[in-house]
Each structure stands twice: as C-alpha cells, then as structure tokens.
Amino acid sequence: MVASEAQIREWLTQVTDPEIPVLTIEDLGILRDVRHGKDGVTVTITPTYSGCPAMMAIRMEIVRALREQGVERVRVEEVLSPAWTTDWLSQDGRAKLLAYGIAPPAGKAQRKSALFGEPDTVACPQCGSERTSRTSEFGSTACKAMYRCEDCLEPFDYFKCI
C-alpha cells in the first residue's frame, strides 16, 4: 500500500524538536516537503540555525517514525534555502510554546536597519505582564533569548525572531 503524503505528514507529527519537545517539526516550520515516489519517501527539512545540534536527532527520529509505520525506504534531505525564519512557526506552535513557558516570537523577522533596534515588547508567559527586560540575547539553545519579568520576577525564555 502506498501511503498518501497527508498520511505521512500525520505520522511525522510524532517527530518533535528534542530541545523543545512540545513542538513538532511541522509546528517549527522545519519540515519543508514530503514526497512519495517509486523509490520510497523523501522528507526535506531545513535547519533553524547553521549549527543546530538537533538536526541529527531529528533525522533519526524521522526515519524511526516512518519505519514504525512500515515505510522502509526513507531519505531525509537537508536544504538551506529559503533560509528558515520564525515567521514559519505555526499558530498552533506559538500557542504550545506559550503554554510550555516560552514566550513566542513577537512580530516579524524583518532586517533591523539600525545598529541597536528597540527590543521587542515581550509578554511574560507566566503572568502576561509586558514589563519585562532582556538579560541576554543568547539563551540555552540557539533559538532562544533570556528575559526576566519585572512584575512576577520570573526569568523566562523568549523564542527570538530571526
């Protein structure tokens, strides 16, 4: 039996980002294409950051998830272009991030022309306050920055725009 692309995408919802396990690769926008031809299934993904260490784990998870469903021949291809952007994060993904305690990206990922752009207004994922400040633009993973809420005083991660 040849599985439809929709069916394969459904199976791939099992594959999550190992560093942010609430997000599927589709939520993150790194699943770019699924094709089913005579020589098996080809899944195309794109890295979030050039050095993202999760890519290897994600490739293995894709192969494992499809093998479990009886798809034996799986090829995972990596493309760089068009470059991944946080604008591809799904609405569903944004809601999941917030529920997980990570503030989703605020606004669009356009180029900042000024040397030091005004930092985005980021609402605290715990209490919703917009009185927050940035501790560092680099966080526990490449895609996150560190913030602190001035009202509830909780530190939190922000999924930064890129």
């Binding site: 890295p47 950051y49 050039s50 050095g51 993202c52 260490p53 760089l80 501790t135 560092s136 633009e137 680099f138 966080g139 526990s140 490449a142 560190m146």
Partner: peptide
C-alpha cells in the same frame, strides 16, 4: 553565566557556518 551561553552560541553558529 549569560556570557558563557552567548559565547557558546556564537561559537556554535560559526562552526555550523564553517561546515556549510
């Protein structure tokens, strides 16, 4: 600690770009 993470992140980006 913040700089530890920032430095590590920048290093990771650069090594990733080098690989490309």
């Amino acid at each position: 600690l913040e700089e530890e993470m920032a430095t590590g992140n920048v290093a990771l980006d650069l090594v990733g770009q080098a690989r490309s």
